[in-house]
Design a protein around this nucleic acid. Structure first.
Lengths: 193, 193, 193, 193
DNA sequence: TATGAATGAGGATTCATTCAT
DNA sequence: GATGAATGAATCCTCATTCAT
């Protein structure tokens, strides 16, 4: 975004990545041109290829996220969920200009490579801790349901912008998520269908 | 899909819409070309413009769907949720070739018009009944959380293809969703945060 | 070259082929841009791809030549050579603006596909009759030597422009070629090395 | 080819010239990039411009070759031809990686400067001795025909790769060339046309 | 001096779209 | 009214080349 001093490779590269992140996030892969990205940084489009080799690799690098440090192992699952809720739904995503990478990938989910990354990041990144600590039958399924809730919250808040969720604060939402996590964690008798 | 008898304007139009729906669903707006769509029907691309004026308007018309009839009033919320679960996550969506329109819109959610439609369909269509029958404080918020869960399930099952959800059957999933709905409906004391 | 009346597909296609032939002949494959070719005809570059699919196929089609009708079977080999001499070296190559396709291919002989075509056209086209009627040991080798002479004459006359050959008339050259052909045809004792 | 000690200007220059020769020979002018050449030597492409000013001048300098020393005077013309045959067609051209400079120039013969050099080398270099010793009428023409034969042999053997010539050994070919030279040298009556 | 960052023009190709028949 | 020819802007990407350090 901010154009770097002239002739600073690292800064230019970083600025291109930032611009790419934002554009890809907002417009999807197909909807984004490398000219736009280069234009955002104020640099020639050829530089993009010099640094990233292809639009594809630029995309791959742009959406590569570092997972937030996993929560301390002793804390309850509701805390874990709260952390993810904050990270995925409520945090200020500066580098993505307010949009979470997971949601961003949905916009390009027509591409198989993107779907693969999405699944991988969900399962091996976000939900791994959850699955491991979730007891009872089929812990993976219930962990994925928690993931579905959080991902769905992100979609509704950020993409769809449904009014109640958009207006709700973190604490309010966290409390409801905790209820759900508890309900899924307890091995109690299933609610009547 | 099947090409109509020659010179049947209405049939050609409808066939174009069907083809457009499928293509847009699978490949998103940017990833779909009007040549592909015309090719599917076996007509000249110029016809698309004659009938729909532009790719944009074709898109708008193609994704305009009639919502499935809401469930009968009076049934418990868990039933309502089960119905939505079936409709959004498990049903065969013929016209979208197995993909639910809501999920489809996520692929083009870079466009503001698509986001608007998405919100509108979610709130005024799917979640309206829920909100009305949900008691307690802030029923809209809790209704949207149910919506988030269902939408998230759809995303994880159809787009991301996470393994546990992809393998789980309807009944299994329904039971867990019912637990969540119950937890959100009860006005009981919040779980500890 | 001459731009056709508007909206005449066959004429436009032919004009593009002519322009391509000339450009490829003069500048080689790499040195020729489809923009130039389209510009020669006064047409949009996109049309080139609509008609020929790719620059590669345009090239292939442009250098595809119809071999001159083979000479009557009963005539002596010196006549055959004279015919080839005329065709390859002296004729006015209207469609190639004075340059023979064989010589043209030499300019793009860095590409394997071009070398293959060149060999094929030489052996199966120009030299086939020669080989078949050439008696003695290893007729193919001696036929190829005749080919080499003719091809070399073309190169020196057209590409290099060596003075004596450029000035020599057809009859003068034909007579010398006939001598060579006779020398190669006769099974007489080899000249001393 | 082998990268010189660090900071040895003359050696780097020479290495660039060698690399350029090979690349231009194999791929022609247009098919060769200065990045490739610089990469072969392991230096920065900018150095090429510092040393040679432009790709054009690099090319000009790269293809400037010293002709092999002419054969000793006094030997018969068939010997002269055999020497040229060996030099142009059969020798291992190390600096051009097995391809003779004359044939190499054909690949870039779209450029007028290259054609001029080609003609000059042919006439003033290779064929000068021939012309001088060839008696009879129009010795230059008959000398150029010998040149044409040899050049054509090179083209067919190296560029086109026609099978009989490619398979033939030096001695076999030399014998046939000798016949041709003899036929062209003798002032005998022309063969019947 | 020599290097790597940066450039801008151009490469082939595909796009949505319009004109003319 | 409908079709196929034609368009021009856009696409990603590579090129020879220059600027600044």
């Amino acid at each position: 975004m901010q154009r770097p001093k002239r002739r600073d490779k690292a800064a230019t590269r970083a600025a291109l990545l930032d611009a790419a992140r934002l554009r890809f996030a907002r417009q999807g892969y197909d909807g984004t041109g490398v000219r736009e990205i280069a234009g955002d940084v104020g640099v020639d489009p050829a530089l993009v290829f010099r640094y990233f080799e292809s639009k594809d690799r630029l995309y791959a690098e742009a959406v590569r996220t570092e997972l937030p440090a996993g929560p301390a192992p002793g804390r309850p699952l509701t805390d874990l969920a709260a952390t993810l809720l904050h990270d995925v739904v409520f945090a200020d995503w500066e580098q993505f200009d307010g949009e979470h990478p997971l949601l961003v990938m949905l916009r390009s989910s027509g591409r198989a490579a993107v779907r693969d990354r999405l699944r991988q990041e969900l399962c091996e990144g976000y939900l791994k801790d959850f699955t491991e600590r979730m007891g009872g039958d089929d812990p993976a399924l219930r962990a994925e349901m928690v993931g579905a809730l959080l991902l769905g919250l992100g979609v509704m808040r950020s993409l769809a912008g449904t009014p109640a969720l958009a207006a709700a604060g973190f604490e309010e939402t966290r409390e409801l998520v905790a209820r759900v996590v508890t309900a899924l964690t307890e091995a109690g008798p299933p609610a009547a269908g």
